[in-house]
Design a protein around this nucleic acid. Structure first.
Length: 813
DNA sequence: GACAGTGAAATTTTT
DNA sequence: TTTCACTGTC
């Protein structure tokens, strides 16, 4: 096989060194666009092919499902045996361990994962004194505590919340969560760490199984993940982490840049390889990104080299307000589109989701196709959460949150009082069960909320009684449809797969497991599962109907004109690829809980991407506009110190997404919370080398525009505000187009002539900067001649081409 | 238990 | 401006 040589030969020397490195821990500092995914996947293939490493002993973890999928696919393309390697997200890998050791970890064998909303509901029920907002805040802090591996009794909790009551809240939450048998996201890391640190057998088996451990995007790992990493590596493990400290943007979620900054200290003998050759962006883009991030202190230091060489200078545009900002973007895109640039080449980046609205309105109006990444999450919609909760309750009868969500939906006369009664009845049984157990958990079927419901049935008022027995019947018939009642204890259940206390070494996984491993968290499992196929979809369909949820949401659709039924149908479809048994159900739920990335609508593949800067990590676009570069928005003005450095890294991430063209927009005013606020340009704009950008629009003080530099040419005859409206150029170009072209009848050429005067500077998308040399009316049109800096003179009709010819406003000298 | 009305608040969020 | 949580009413 010379395949591998080919793969290696396309790598640059540093990349190749990273691939073939062995013998010590390795830290790969991979700058943006430096081909790190290629390095990781080639390394997997190389290890299997060249070093004859057993594919099953390779573990590679990433943060996003998308990245995990990509890694898995690319590795398999190079080396099919990589399918047997464990290429997963951190959380999915944690779930993988817990699923096999559920009993040891104190979990229900069919545990599901609570999202933040579920956690808030749970805590609110556990501590009714808390307002919803307080519960939300507490859940956020608990998540942070778990990021840092702090238990409720850890004295360091004060770092997260100085309030001494916080520990109690955390402890209460934990207890209640354990009672449900479920986990939250933090547990998917924390519980495996605890398990591995307390159970030498499990740990030994794991560290022996994985001789190679790799981590991608290491700069975004948190303390718990660092502990996790240490727990799964033994003396014989080869560990390799890849990351870019300049792209660490999840500090607010507990990510510790320190993990990457101090990796070499934590893993003595670490070799460091820097990948600094950037294959994505043209030089001036990297120059901007580099100059901005250079202002950070805590960094390892890297300088990207633009392998693509020179290219179009990024454009810095000053605009009046967000309306102009969105119309500027729209025009940019439409003009390019007319010249054959697909919509899909463009991405509009913003700091906060709320900013997407203006762009959506404008694009809708102009019929520019777009997709908003990250908003309206499918799995967070009410009807979907309802259906999933019902499924979760069928899977795990102790799921209090799921139970409460669906028991009275549609209304069955079962209010909070009745719900509380049932839940406390079940929890009572739980305590008794635990008390009688000898070390192991023994919940018995009494802890099941359904069975508790049956026990309290007699004491209920008539209406509640009939509603509840109806509900019980529905759930029971669904349970019998899907298969056996949940096992009381899972210890033996998984023994064959991954025995909790095996005395042997590695246990080969059965086929079914291999598939899900290779699948690395994709919603759609391997085709081999299709045999059970229609099965689970049929089940979900049945559930949606018999639960009354379908009728309920149908009613909602009718009154509100929503799409809830269609969404439910989509969920049913998604289930069609899973087997119609309990295992299939658990797998379906886990996939959905861990991978909520929306299934791409390929309705219109050619559309502009609207996206927060955070969400662009790992993506690239030929043309990028970073919007809202104003103090208070990006960065927010309360940012200082480390937080400010993180914002700066965010800016760095945004810039380095652009391949060919980068635009930066900044507004002088912005409507914020209903009022108009005057904005200052982002401080990051001042960190840019002025010679790296072309400035358009009314540049505020301190910014040198084209006009300012060449003011001698013109003597400032236009005086900076010759424009009647006083609007900066984009209002002009658009306004001119709209009002003169469409709505307003002929005003002869006076208005055009006033604006398009000899001597005025302008900027053309293709030809760059130029000056009007002639301006005159013909018998039907008003014509201007423009001489461009790049040389050459052209004739334009401003009436039609106003948007291609952006006048440069003189100001801010 | 469902609804309308009032008032305060308003990032980013891989899983 | 918009959103959502809470309050009071039927």
């Amino acid at each position: 096989m010379t395949n591998l040589d080919e793969w290696l030969s396309v790598l640059n020397p540093e990349q190749r060194a990273a691939v073939v490195h062995q013998g010590s821990p390795l830290l790969i500092l991979a700058g943006a666009g430096s081909g790190k995914t290629r390095v990781i996947t080639t390394k997997v293939a190389w290890l299997i092919k060249e070093r004859r490493v057993d594919p099953e002993s390779i573990l590679a973890v990433t943060f996003t499902n998308k990245a995990a999928r990509e890694m898995s696919e690319r590795a398999r393309r190079m080396e099919p045996r990589a399918e047997r390697s464990v290429l997963r997200t951190f959380h999915s890998f944690g779930a993988w361990i817990l699923r096999r050791n559920a009993s040891l970890a104190g979990l229900d064998s069919n545990f599901t994962v609570y999202d933040d909303d579920d956690s808030v509901t749970l805590l609110s029920k556990a501590m009714p004194v808390l307002t919803r907002q307080q519960a939300q805040g507490a859940v956020r802090k608990i998540a942070r505590a778990k990021d840092y591996c702090y238990s409720p009794n850890d004295s360091r909790l004060v770092e997260i919340d100085p309030d001494p009551d916080f520990a109690d809240v955390y402890a209460t939450y934990e207890k209640r969560l354990r009672d449900t048998g479920n986990v939250d996201f933090g547990d998917l890391i924390l519980l495996p760490v605890r398990l591995l640190n307390s159970d030498a057998t499990v740990r030994d088996r794991l560290t022996r199984r994985f001789s190679v451990v790799m981590v991608d995007e290491y700069q975004d790992s948190n303390v718990a993940q660092f502990e996790f990493l240490k727990a799964v590596t033994g003396p014989g493990s080869y560990i390799c982490v890849v990351g870019d400290d300049d792209q660490s943007i999840y500090r607010f979620r507990g990510a510790e840049v320190r993990n990457i900054l101090t990796f070499s200290e934590n893993f003595p003998g670490t070799a460091v390889i820097r990948l600094e050759r950037n294959y994505r962006s043209v030089a001036p883009i990297l120059s901007i990104a580099g100059h901005v991030v250079e202002n950070n202190e805590g960094r390892l230091g890297k300088t990207l080299i633009a392998e693509r060489g020179a290219g179009k200078k990024p454009v810095l545009v000053f605009l009046r307000d967000q309306d102009e900002e969105s119309s500027f973007c729209a025009e940019l895109i439409q003009n390019a589109q007319k010249k054959g640039v697909p919509y899909a080449d463009w991405a509009i980046l913003y700091r906060t989701n709320a900013q997407s609205l203006g762009f959506e309105t404008e694009f809708l109006h102009r019929k520019i196709p777009y997709r908003v990444v990250g908003s309206l999450k499918f799995y967070e919609r009410e009807e979907i959460k309802d259906a999933l909760a019902f499924l979760a309750l069928v899977a795990n009868g102790r799921d209090e949150v799921a139970f409460r969500r669906v028991v009275n939906k549609p209304s069955r006369g079962l209010g909070e009082v009745t719900q509380d009664k049932i839940v406390s009845e079940a929890r009572k049984a739980l305590f008794e069960g635990v008390a009688g157990a000898d070390g192991n958990f023994d919940f018995g079927e009494k802890a099941d909320l359904l069975s508790a419901a049956r026990r309290v049935l007699e004491g209920l008022p008539k209406k509640a009684r009939s509603g509840l027995s109806e509900f019980i019947t529905i759930v029971e018939s669904l349970r019998s449809l899907i298969g056996d009642a949940p096992p009381v204890d899972d210890g033996d259940e998984f023994a064959g797969l991954f025995p909790a206390h095996a005395t042997t070494g590695d246990v080969p996984l059965p086929d079914a497991e291999r598939q899900s491993v290779g699948d690395s968290g994709a919603i759609v499992p391997d085709s081999s599962k299709k045999k059970g196929a229609v099965g689970l979809a049929v089940f979900v369909e049945r559930l949606v109907e018999s639960s009354g949820l379908l009728a309920y949401h149908q009613g909602q659709d009718e009154v509100a004109g929503t799409q809830k039924v269609a969404n439910l149908q989509e969920l049913v479809n998604a289930a069609s690829l899973y087997s119609a048994d309990r295992a299939g159900l658990t797998e379906f739920l886990e996939h959905i809980e861990l991978d909520r990335s929306m299934v791409e609508d390929d309705d219109n593949p050619d559309s502009v991407t609207l996206i927060t800067v955070h969400n662009t990590k790992g993506l690239e676009f030929p043309r990028v506009v970073i919007t809202g570069l104003e103090s208070g928005i990006f960065p927010r003005d309360d940012k200082a110190g480390d937080d400010l450095e993180e914002e700066r890294r965010l800016m760095y991430v945004g810039c380095t997404r652009a391949m060919d063209e980068l635009y930066l927009t900044s507004c002088a005013a912005r409507r914020l919370y209903g009022r108009t606020a005057f904005m200052e340009p982002s401080k990051f704009l001042r960190e840019i080398d002025p010679s790296d950008v072309q400035v358009l629009g009314r540049a505020p003080r301190g910014f040198t525009s084209f006009t300012a530099r060449d003011s001698s040419l013109d003597g400032g005859s236009t005086g900076g505000r010759s424009d009647v409206s006083g609007r900066p150029l984009h209002g002009e170009s658009r306004g001119g187009q709209d009002s003169l072209g469409d709505s307003v009848p002929r005003r002869d050429f006076a208005e055009l002539a006033a604006r398009w005067k000899v001597g005025r500077k302008l900027f053309h998308d293709d030809y760059g900067y130029g000056m009007i040399t002639k301006a005159f009316p013909t018998d039907s049109e008003f014509v201007v001649m423009v001489r461009f800096e790049s040389g050459g003179e052209r004739r334009f009709l401003p009436k039609y081409q106003a948007k291609d010819l952006m006048l440069v406003e003189e100001e801010g000298l």
